[in-house]
């Protein structure tokens, strides 16, 4: 303890606040991540099946969704954060703290994850889809029993990458008063020049990213034959 206080004087004095920052980051990651997962998966599937040559080809649906995703992917997240404040207030009742930042996080990461899912599903051999159809599978069955099932490994990798990039977004969200590790590092590490806090925050984030990456790789590999 003495040792730690010597090396990390500022951090040790703000330990409760640090733990809370970690918790907030996890909270944002979990909430936003779950919602992004659902929407991204749905959009990724819709893109895959409605694109030209897909099993439920639909030009209009594909074009509209494709354009919307491109639109949101091209807006820098920091602008999205402020631009979506009114929407956030309307949906969540607030535009600050963890609750207030879920909406922009979802808007920021869903397009990315949708594209990731789309490209994961695109790796499915067209022949498998054809074989399933020839055995009497309906398009819905093809989605669940062929696309999702056979792309499990690449989808897990997509989740890994998105989780990590979402972690980066939560750090930025700190800038608009979301709390979390990003906010903690900026407020103390940067604004008050407390170098130890910057370093510890970075180390925690590196650990977090490593764990996610390792877990993702582990599950992806278990599903590759």
């Amino acid at each position: 303890m003495q040792e730690l206080s010597y090396w990390l004087p500022n951090l040790m004095r703000r330990l409760p606040e640090f733990w809370k920052a970690c918790g907030d980051t996890l909270l944002m990651e979990a909430w936003a991540g779950s919602i992004v997962f659902v929407f991204g998966l749905v959009f990724g599937i819709i893109l895959t099946v409605t694109k030209p040559g897909g099993i439920m080809e639909n030009r209009t649906v594909y074009q509209v969704l494709d354009k919307i995703i491109n639109l949101f992917r091209s807006i820098p997240f920091i602008i999205l954060l402020t631009a979506l404040m009114p929407l956030s207030r309307a949906i969540m009742g607030t535009a600050i703290y963890v609750r207030g930042v879920i909406v922009p996080l979802v808007f920021g990461a869903t397009p990315f994850f949708s594209r990731q899912v789309e490209s994961a599903l695109a790796q499915t051999d067209k022949g498998l889809v054809e074989a399933a159809l020839s055995m009497g599978s309906s398009p819905t069955e093809v989605i669940f029993r062929v696309y999702l099932r056979e792309s499990l490994a690449p989808i897990i990798r997509a989740i890994t990458i998105t989780t990590i990039s979402l972690l980066g977004l939560t750090a930025m969200a700190g800038a608009v008063g979301a709390g979390g590790l990003g906010d903690f590092a900026i407020r103390y590490g940067h604004d008050r020049n407390m170098i130890d806090i910057t370093w510890v925050t970075v180390i925690v984030l590196v650990l977090g990213v490593s764990i996610v990456q390792w877990l993702g790789e582990y599950f992806a590999r278990r599903n590759t034959h």
């Binding site: 074989a131 020839s134 055995m135 009497g136 056979e150």
Partner: peptide, 25 residues
Amino acid sequence: KPKELYKARTKIGMIFQQFNLMPSR
């Protein structure tokens, strides 16, 4: 109709040059 077609297809087997077995199964 689509449903009838899916049913009819179960009575028409098909095999392919690239076999098209599901690799994860």
